[in-house]
């Protein structure tokens, strides 16, 4: 069982490190395959995100990819509401929360699917144009 937990963690971390939302994978993996209660799975994800993101933020900051000005305008109101939402969750039944999380996943998945298909189609068009342009030059 311990090995399964580690594997689930690695899978979530891999997707998270690749910038595709590790938590949205880690939480359902923990609840569906490891029978971890929904609230505990969410708590694990929140805590695990902290060390991972600190390392990633340092690397990104060195590469000049972090824009600090958003911190005050986006992160501060977000944190305030985040605490409020965490308090609301306290009074919610695990099954209800799990179902809400399911709807949230479906919505995110559909958005992700559409944007992935759009970028795939765009990539193919660009490749085709490159090939056409090369042909013209020859």
């Amino acid at each position: 069982m311990v090995i399964l937990y580690i594997l689930v963690g690695i899978a979530g971390g891999l997707i998270g490190g690749m910038g595709m939302g590790g938590g949205t994978l880690l939480i359902p993996l923990l609840t569906i395959f490891c029978s971890v209660p929904q609230h505990i799975a969410q708590s694990i994800n929140l805590i695990a995100f902290v060390p991972m993101s600190v390392v990633a933020i340092i690397i990104h900051a060195k590469n000049g990819l972090i824009k600090g000005e958003y911190f005050w305008w986006v992160a501060l109101p977000a944190t305030a509401v985040g605490i409020l939402a965490s308090l609301i969750v306290k009074n919610l039944d695990g099954k209800v929360l799990s179902a809400c999380f399911g709807y949230f996943l479906i919505a995110l998945g559909i958005y992700q699917l559409i944007s992935a298909i759009v970028s795939c189609v765009k990539g193919h068009k660009e490749k085709k144009e490159k090939i056409m342009n090369k042909g013209k030059k020859v």
């Binding site: 580690i6 590790g22 805590i47 695990a48």
Partner: peptide
């Protein structure tokens, strides 16, 4: 969450270790 009692130290350490390792690889 922790103050509300939603916390499992052993599970957090095991899964969290995997997350950090996987995160770096990812």
């Amino acid at each position: 969450y922790v103050i509300s009692g939603y916390f499992d130290l052993r599970l957090t350490l095991i899964v969290g270790g995997g997350v950090v390792a996987g995160g770096i690889a990812g």
